[in-house]
Design a protein around this nucleic acid. Sequence first.
DNA 1: GTATCAATGATACGAACGTATCAACAGTCG
DNA 2: CGACTGTTGATACGTTCGTATCATTGATAC
Lengths: 187, 187
Amino acid sequence: MSVEERTDQILDAVERLLGRGGISAVTMRAVAAEAGVSLRLVQYYGSSKDDLLSAALERLSSRSVDAWTGEATPDSVRECLVSFMLAALPTDDASRALHRVGVSREVLAITGHPAAATAYRLHLTRIQNLIVDQCLRADPAVSPSRAAELAAQAMSLVHGLGSLLMIDHLTADQARSAVQNFDANLS
Amino acid sequence: MSVEERTDQILDAVERLLGRGGISAVTMRAVAAEAGVSLRLVQYYGSSKDDLLSAALERLSSRSVDAWTGEATPDSVRECLVSFMLAALPTDDASRALHRVGVSREVLAITGHPAAATAYRLHLTRIQNLIVDQCLRADPAVSPSRAAELAAQAMSLVHGLGSLLMIDHLTADQARSAVQNFDANLS
DNA sequence: GTATCAATGATACGAACGTATCAACAGTCG
DNA sequence: CGACTGTTGATACGTTCGTATCATTGATAC
């Protein structure tokens, strides 16, 4: 097995653990068990735990940004925002896993871990820029600052709705109708 | 020092640690150091760590609900929602501490800790009921289900805005204007 | 063949945690 | 006075974590 394959195998295991139990579920031993390899191997390829986590989070961030970039280009700002929000809403296993990872990163960032904070900020900025680009492509007439403002509001709303959705304080339909309501009130 | 005073002294220490570093910052030894007492004393009054955390979180939840209940009663649904959102926005140290605690509870709830999940759900339901009650008192004409829907949307938005605010992805003014925008679009 | 070096596995080490144990002290009732 | 009970303190135990160490294997160059 090549180096890249081994690395992917281990990062895949980290990703699964992250999506299932958040950052606290990622221990070197748990990664080894999840990947079906020995602890020494995880050390060998991921050097330290921080490196391993950083690599997995970076890969996860890039991958979701790339996946989203390839989506069909919307033809209006409203459609752009609404399709992002509906896709980001944690209504299936994949998006629920992403939400767990995001909240884990958030709690690390706001409880005094500077490196995690800057990495998480970068991640959010990438997502926001992605939305802004799509909005501007859909409607070049809208101002970039206005697009950024709307993107931030959409990200906030979908994050909050996702949090309430994850613990079943909201149903998926209620969350979707809140998104539609936000959309309907866009000028 | 009486039993109640000792208990308060220790729970106060837990609360400070929670607000500063989230749940992971609460260790028996850290609580002892923060309260200025010995580890044995923390064990003596808080029996187990779970009991200690549960008691502190319950006290914190009740206290914030009570504090909010005593506020001036608004005279419209919109004013009720907006005053809640502006107050809940983490723009000062106290509300930022509360946001840290909330996100910590969330991450525990969504990563497979059933007891934390039900306790957190209960907490959110209490807050929602509080908002609904105030809305109905402000305008008895509005339907309870509509008030609950609006309360959930307000909670979602303020939670999401708070998350972006905490890591400085948003400024306080941007968050406030998003709240005003949400308010302006209420029917 | 064998020397060499990267890859892999088993195990050990120190730190931090929750919790338990044992000792010292203070107040109270007989 | 003395026995007892509840409170406080110091320390130890077992577990889990990240990491380090040591040994073994397998391929490749000479």
